[in-house]
Design a protein around this nucleic acid. Structure first.
Length: 823
RNA sequence: GCCGGGGUGGCGGAAUCGGCAGACGCAUCGGACUUAAAAUCCGAAGGGAGUUAUCUCCCGUGUGGGUUCAAAUCCCACCCCCGGCACCA
């Protein structure tokens, strides 16, 4: 009987479903293991091979843990709210409320066909009111804690999606979803104060077990820099003590600040600009505002543009009046949107000074560059071609009044202290991270649960009134006005105040999709509770997530947001955990024949086709064999043949072994190979090195079939178990045929290897002469140098290369090699 | 520019506490089976040279140096590819 994957896979998928094989008892689990994968967005095109690649890798690990005795909980859900879904619905002119359920059904079908160990009794759909009721509850918790705030701020606006975007959703100046260049707009939006958690988010990275590259990406995104905030009084200003605040990481260079630059959007531009300069300044600011982010980045290498405002500020260190310019190289979104320009020690300021004829004053130099006897308070070192940016313990301050001669880093601290006495400076930590903008002027999301009352102000919807249902709206197209389509729905918009009962209206923005996904993992163990988002006992048992595997593209999105929300929930007393994921591993990127997989290239891989042609087991195995899982690899149709042939041969070997009916091990080499294979596969699965685990299994099969021999039952039985994480269906079938009680995942034990069996009596030892391989000799394990050397020189080829010369040195690494050195 | 990851046969990739480079697989070639093909099974294979049952030698892990008895692996300089960030003060 030949191997027919379709029949085998249908049989076991039915078995798992009927026997609820993959539904652990969440309250009785002794060794709970929450195995999480990143839930998909249920697109109309169906499950993407990239999804399946990630899921298979996570599923193998979950099945491996289960065979080792853990109670593995492996749920799945659907990230079905959001702009992506809505844009697609608009394109095909079908309402998302109709589209999403059919997409989800299609996903379920494909996920079942792929043979995942999914617990189908606990799925999550973010568009289900029973789910988003708690997404809204989460918003209310943050609102009541003062962590959600509506404020006017410069935000990213996507003119195509007609909504604002979070910083994290702007990729190289373009909309993450539609690739349209993003514009800056000043709008009133809802923000979550994630910056309050910046230090904790950064510091915890030191102890969580995550892929190092993901940690680095997150750490760079948070971008903590230590420095100082300095205040420069505006001179001759009639308002009196108005100052311009700047952030700098180099307070030691303040004596060299010869001008200031404000971002064109800076609120003080209007104040400092003199009447004769106003027209030019306004023209420049208008010009800068009209340029989108993509264009703005292209100008990076070009000459730095800017205009003089006519205004002056006082350098708080020198007392000198310095001109105030505006320029688009200063960004409103970082620091204070204003800088003190130190052209001697900052590349950009140097370029700007060069382009506009501004003074350059060196105030730092390396200790060696200062000739003995020079007075550092008036060192005339001239001005070099570029800025001198070195900032180590080897630099000293010059031309900095009484701080001259001090080591630069210590001098910086002293200067801040000195200025602080006059209230003009303080030490400051600044972050690249911004508060998380969570409001979206779109339809397809959970309405933000806020009610505006003339009398009482903005109020959160009361918990008993949740969910605020998203109404069915025929025309859900976004508008260019910055107002959500929900504003057109009177029954939704008009409401009463929960406080005073008076007339009020609802917030019409919906929340960002990343709020839905920010807590979904908390819901899985508690899906049956409709009176709480997550049950305390269940959460204590199952959280934090034991293993999370996903793509690194979420390093600064989902993975950052969900960490933040977890910390907030902990602080508010709803959770006991500090971090949501005990272990996170990123998987690699799948490419197709050397090219990125994308719809526009037309090289999209449909898992369905491959599963029908080769079977899910072969497909799973190939996906994991084509390269290291954590690195990625190249998908080629031709590669599918290898795993398929391998499974055919496994099937044939078991069939033959059953027919022959022999027990035991006749060949000690085969038994040794089995133990070596168990060791290798166990270690490789634990470290997610699936490609080499599969290679080890192939190697073992080659060994037991060498020269057309028929394997014994003892030789093939462990194979069914070792194969089970990777190819679960065929493993179930073979396990059953070999007399095991189904399911293999409930009744098999992960095989153990015996280190004693791995020990060999004899081994092949390479012999080198002067570092070059000249022979290989068979020696006893642990043979002495004398014995090895004697055997080595007896080799004809070794003797020839020794050429009668005197052996002046011997390098012998026991059981590894011997190297004879002759002159 | 900065931060990650990487560069190994025709191809995907193994091997990095320095110790037989190319495991495993794909494609290829030879043979068996077959009327034939497919499938399957057995075998060969980094490149070059000599000898050609077998064996031997030289070269070889992006480039150039270095350390070492010994380097894909360590050090220095550089080139290229992929991903992320990007005028971050």
């Amino acid at each position: 009987m030949t191997y027919e994957p379709a029949a085998v896979e249908a049989k076991w998928q039915t078995f798992w479903e009927e026997h609820r094989t993959n539904e652990p008892d969440l309250d009785a689990a002794e060794r709970p293991f929450f195995n999480l994968m990143m839930y998909p967005y249920p697109s109309a095109e169906g499950l993407h091979v990239g999804n399946l690649y990630a899921f298979t890798g996570a599923d193998i690990y979950g099945r491996f843990r289960r065979l080792q005795g853990d109670d593995v909980f492996e749920p799945i859900g659907y990230d079905a709210f959001g702009i992506h879904s809505e844009n697609h619905a608009l394109k095909v002119e079908t309402h998302p409320m109709e589209l999403i359920p059919s997409n989800i059904r299609n996903f379920e079908r494909m996920l079942r066909a792929a043979g995942l160990m999914t617990d189908w009794s606990r799925t999550v759909d973010t568009t289900d009111p029973a789910y988003y009721k708690w997404t809204q509850w989460l918003f209310v918790q943050l609102f009541n804690a003062g962590l959600a705030e509506k404020k006017e701020a410069p935000v990213n606006w996507c003119p195509s999606c007609q909504t604002v975007l979070a910083n994290e959703q702007v990729i190289a100046g373009r909309c993450e979803r539609c690739d349209t260049p993003v514009e800056q707009r000043q709008l009133s939006q809802w923000f979550f104060k994630i910056t309050k958690y910046a230090d904790r988010l950064l510091d915890n990275l030191e102890w969580i077990d995550w892929s190092p590259s993901t940690k680095t990406a997150q750490s760079n995104w948070i971008g903590r820099s230590h420095g100082a905030s300095l205040r420069f009084p505006i001179s001759g200003h009639d308002a009196g003590d108005e100052t311009i605040e700047v952030f700098t990481t180099r307070p030691d260079t303040v004596f060299g600040a010869t001008f200031m630059v404000l971002a064109p959007e800076h609120p003080l531009v209007d104040v400092v600009t003199t009447d004769d300069r106003r027209r030019e300044v306004e023209a420049y600011a208008r010009e800068a505002a009209s340029v989108d982010l993509v264009e703005r980045q292209k100008t990076e290498e070009k000459e730095k543009t800017g205009v003089f405002t006519g205004g002056y500020a006082v350098n708080p260190a020198t007392g000198a009046e310095i001109p105030i310019w505006i320029a688009d190289y200063v960004l409103m979104g970082y620091g204070t949107g204003a800088i003190m320009a130190v052209p001697g020690h900052d590349e950009r300021d140097h370029q700007f000074a060069g382009a506009h004829g501004l003074d350059i004053l060196p105030v730092v130099c390396s200790r060696d560059a200062l000739p003995d006897g020079t007075d550092p308070t008036s060192a005339d070192l001239g001005v070099g071609d570029g800025a001198f940016v070195e900032h180590t313990a080897d630099e000293v301050l010059i031309n900095s009044d009484r701080f001259s001669g001090m080591e630069a880093i210590a001098g910086g601290r002293a200067i801040v202290e000195w200025l602080a006495e006059r209230g003009l400076a303080e030490e400051r930590v600044n972050y690249r991270l911004h508060d998380w903008c969570i409001s979206r002027q779109r339809y397809w999301g959970p309405p933000i649960p806020v009610i505006y009352c003339e009398a009482c102000g903005p109020r959160a919807v009361r918990e008993q009134d949740l969910p605020v249902l998203l109404p069915y709206v025929e025309d859900f197209r976004p508008t260019a006005t910055g107002v959500s389509p929900l504003a057109r729905v009177e029954e939704f918009y008009e409401t009463t105040c929960p406080e005073c009962g008076g007339e009020a209206h609802r917030e019409t923005d919906v929340s960002d999709t990343f709020l839905d996904s920010g807590w979904y993992f908390l819901r899985y163990p508690s899906t049956e509770y409709d009176d709480r988002p997550f049950d305390a006992d269940r959460t204590r048992t199952w959280l934090p997530v034991a293993s999370y595997i996903g793509g690194e593209e979420h390093a600064v999105l989902h993975l950052l947001y969900s960490r933040f929300l977890t910390m907030v929930l902990k602080d508010l007393g709803h959770l006991e955990i500090e971090e949501p994921y005990a272990r996170f591993r990123k998987h690699g990127l799948l490419i197709k024949e050397g090219a990125k997989i994308s719809k526009s290239r037309g090289n999209v891989i449909l898992p369905d086709d491959y599963i029908v042609r080769f079977g899910a087991d072969t497909f799973r195995m190939y996906l994991m064999f084509l390269g290291p899982f954590q690195v990625g690899g190249d998908f080629r149709d031709s590669g599918m043949a290898g795993p398929r042939r391998f499974l055919n041969k496994v099937w044939a070997s078991v069939t033959d072994a059953l027919e022959a009916g022999r027990e035991g091990f006749e060949d000690p080499a085969v038994e040794r190979a089995l133990h070596a294979t168990i060791k290798q596969v166990t270690e490789d699965l634990e470290s997610l090195d699936y490609n080499t685990a599969i290679a080890a299994l192939m190697d073992y099969l080659n060994t037991i079939r060498a020269g057309g021999r028929t394997a014994s039952l003892d030789e093939v039985r462990p194979l069914a178990v070792l194969l089970a994480p990777i190819a679960p269906h065929i493993a179930e079938e073979l396990w059953e045929r070999l007399g095991g009680a189904p399911s293999v995942f409930d009744h098999a034990e992960w095989p153990a290897y015996d280190p004693a069996v791995l020990v060999v009596d004899e081994l092949d030892l390479p012999v080198q002469v002067n570092g070059k391989l000249r022979a290989t000799i068979r020696v006893a394990r642990g043979a002495s140098q004398e014995a090895v050397q004697e055997a080595a020189v007896a080799e004809e080829n070794v003797a020839r290369h020794l050429n009668g010369g005197e052996i002046r040195k011997v390098i012998h690494v026991p059981d590894r090699l011997i190297n004879l050195l002759v002159s």
